[in-house]
C-alpha cells in the first residue's frame, strides 16, 4: 500500500521543457487518471513515475521516499503498456511469472500467485499459449495479470485500452475498475479518452502542453472547470464557446462564455439568450444533437432529449440557458 507524491516535477529533452512542474499527491488506494490530448506529456509523466524516464527537476516520492534515482524494479511498481509488451516467445504463464522468477520467489508460490491472477482474469485455459495465439482482449488481460502477480504498491497504466475495439474497451474499463477496487492498489492511469477518465478516476489530472490544468474528482472537474481548455476537453459533445460581448455588459476584450450543450434549450418564444439557425440535426435515439450558427457566425451545439421533435434544418430558434450554467473565461483561458 502506498502513496505517490509528485513535487514540482519537470522534464526537458535537450533545451525543450516538455513538463513544466506538476504537483500531486496520490492517496493510498486511490485511482488517479491523467488525461489530455496526445503530446501533452501525460505518458512522459507516467514514465517518470515508473523510472523509465529520468527526472529533470523536482521529486517523485513513493511512500514519502524520494525515488528519482531508483531503478524501476526497485520502486515496487507494475506497469501495463499500451502495446502490452508481452514477451512473444514465452507462454502466458511464463509472461506472468517472469518478474517473480527474477526475484527468486519459490516455485510453489509463483504457481499459486499466477493461478490466482489467471482465475481473476479468466485466463486459466490459456496459460500454456503464446501471446500471438490470443485475442487483443486476452493479451490485454495477460498484461494486467503480469502486473497483478507482483502485488506491487502502485499500478501504472499507459493507455492500456487504446488498442482494443470500442466494445471491448468498455468491457475492459469495467474490469479494470472492479479489479482495482478489489485489490485496493494505488493506481495511476494515462489516457487520452475523457470518457475513460471520467468513469475510472477517483481523481483526475487534466494536462495540456506539459501543465496540469486541473486536478480533482471527475464530476467536480466537469461542473467547475478551471480553464477553457478543461471545459472544452471534458464533456461530450464539447462545451460551446461564445464571445461574451454579444450578451451585453462590457466584459474585458476576449472574454468568452462557455456553455455546455446539455445546458442549452431550444425555445420557440419565451425567454431566450440568443437567436440561432439550425445547420443540421443528428438524432441519436436517446438524444438529439442540434448544430446551429449564431448571428455572429459562431457554431453552437445543443443536446436535447430524443423524445423532443427534431428541429428542421434552416429553421431559427431562440436558445436559452440558466445563468448558473454560464462559465466565463478570460482571454488567457482562465476561469473568471
Amino acid at each position: 500500500m502506498a502513496t505517490v507524491t509528485l513535487e514540482n516535477l519537470k522534464k526537458s529533452f535537450g533545451d525543450t521543457e516538455v513538463i513544466h512542474g506538476v504537483n500531486m499527491h496520490i492517496e493510498d488506494g486511490e485511482f488517479v487518471v491523467i488525461v489530455g490530448p496526445s503530446g501533452c506529456g501525460k505518458s512522459t509523466l507516467l514514465r517518470m513515475v515508473a523510472g523509465l524516464e529520468t527526472v529533470s527537476a523536482g521529486t517523485v516520492k513513493i511512500n514519502d521516499t524520494p525515488m528519482n534515482d531508483t531503478e524501476p524494479m526497485d520502486r515496487d511498481i507494475a506497469m501495463v503498456f499500451q502495446t502490452y509488451a508481452l514477451y512473444p516467445h514465452m507462454s502466458v504463464f511464463d509472461n506472468m511469472a517472469y518478474s517473480l522468477k527474477i526475484s527468486r520467489v519459490p516455485r510453489a508460490e509463483i504457481e499459486a500467485r499466477v493461478a490466482k491472477a489467471a482465475d481473476m482474469l479468466e485466463l486459466t485455459p490459456y496459460l500454456k499459449r503464446k501471446p500471438r495465439q490470443l485475442s487483443g482482449g486476452q493479451r490485454q488481460r495477460v498484461a494486467m495479470g503480469r502486473a497483478i502477480v507482483r502485488k506491487p504498491a502502485v499500478f501504472l497504466f499507459d493507455e492500456p485500452l487504446s488498442n482494443l475495439d470500442a466494445k471491448l474497451r468498455v468491457q475492459m474499463r469495467l474490469e479494470i475498475k472492479t479489479l482495482q477496487r478489489e485489490l485496493g492498489v494505488t493506481s495511476l492511469y494515462v489516457t487520452h479518452d475523457q470518457v475513460e477518465a471520467m468513469t475510472l478516476a477517483d481523481r483526475m489530472i487534466v494536462m495540456t502542453a506539459g501543465v496540469a490544468d486541473q486536478i480533482g474528482a471527475p464530476l467536480e472537474v466537469y461542473a467547475n472547470p478551471k480553464t477553457a481548455f478543461v471545459a472544452g476537453f471534458i464533456g461530450s459533445p464539447p462545451t460551446n464557446f461564445l464571445d461574451a460581448a454579444q450578451f451585453g455588459g462590457s466584459p474585458a476584450p476576449g472574454t468568452q462564455v462557455g456553455i455546455r450543450p446539455e445546458h442549452v434549450r431550444l425555445t420557440n418564444g419565451g425567454a431566450s439568450n440568443l437567436e440561432a439557425r439550425v445547420v443540421y440535426a443528428e438524432p441519436l435515439g436517446a438524444e438529439t444533437l442540434v448544430h446551429l450558427t449564431t448571428p455572429d457566425g459562431s457554431a453552437i451545439t445543443v443536446r436535447q432529449d430524443g423524445a423532443l421533435p427534431v428541429p428542421e434544418e434552416g429553421s431559427s430558434h431562440g436558445l436559452h440557458w440558466d445563468a448558473e450554467h454560464e462559465m466565463r473565461f478570460s482571454e488567457a483561458g482562465q476561469r473568471i
Partner: peptide, 9 residues
Amino acid sequence: ELAEAARVD
C-alpha cells in the same frame, strides 16, 4: 516496450 517491461519486471 519489451525492454522497459523487462526493466519493470
